[in-house]
């Protein structure tokens, strides 16, 4: 049971500085990211600290970057920052797929267009799954079938990704024959 390779699945690239921009901001959901700024082009770096690193010294690879407690914390401050930004900014996001699209949607609400935003998938492939029945978001799903935390339905994790919700679609797998739930497979780690 699979509907992989849906055409609308976003495709991600590695990050490189877009030299047509005047200012560059990289946001990452972890201290480990790969981003090489061109010589002479200063990039500002925001990242989320590893859970066990909180309160400790910043990792040296982050340079003068700004450190945040959680992805939510980073995105709150990004929202605030973009409301005051001017044209010429380029935004680069590195992280899990749900983080990438939370960043994208925040930037788009601030008026940025898709030519000004660059995304690179890194870290876990675990999925945020939106239950189409009760609209609960189920986080860090690694299996093909998951029990919804909201309504308890057994959800088949479709390969259908919503950029607006930053989540994959979960639909009841045993809607036709109640209780007929195939075994879940470990698929997204």
């Amino acid at each position: 049971m699979s509907d992989q390779f849906i055409k609308s699945r976003p495709v991600y690239q590695s990050l490189a500085v877009d030299s047509s921009g005047l200012r560059h901001l990289l946001v990452s959901d972890s201290p480990a990211f790969s981003f090489a700024a061109l010589p002479g082009q200063e990039a500002e770096i925001w990242f989320v600290a590893a859970p066990d690193q909180e309160g400790r010294t910043r990792p040296p690879e982050a340079g003068g970057g700004r450190c945040f407690r959680s992805p939510r914390h980073l995105i709150d401050r990004l929202d605030h920052r973009l409301a005051r930004e001017r044209m010429g900014l380029r935004l680069y996001a590195s992280g899990t797929e749900d983080f990438l699209w939370d960043v994208f949607n925040t930037a788009q609400r601030a008026g940025m267009n898709k030519q000004e935003i660059f995304q690179c998938h890194s870290g876990t492939k675990a999925r945020r799954v939106a239950c189409v029945h009760c609209r609960t978001f189920n986080h860090a799903v690694t299996t093909t079938i998951v029990r919804c935390e909201g309504c308890g339905a057994n959800l088949f994790v479709r390969d259908h990704f919503s950029r607006r919700l930053s989540a994959f679609m979960g639909v009841k797998v045993d809607a036709e024959v109640a209780g007929d739930v195939p075994p879940a497979e470990q698929a997204y780690s």
Binding site: S20, G21, G88, N113, Q115
Partner: peptide
């Protein structure tokens, strides 16, 4: 506009 960092979309 391009010199000020605007993208073609804008």
């Amino acid at each position: 506009a391009r010199g000020l960092g605007w993208t073609p979309h804008a």
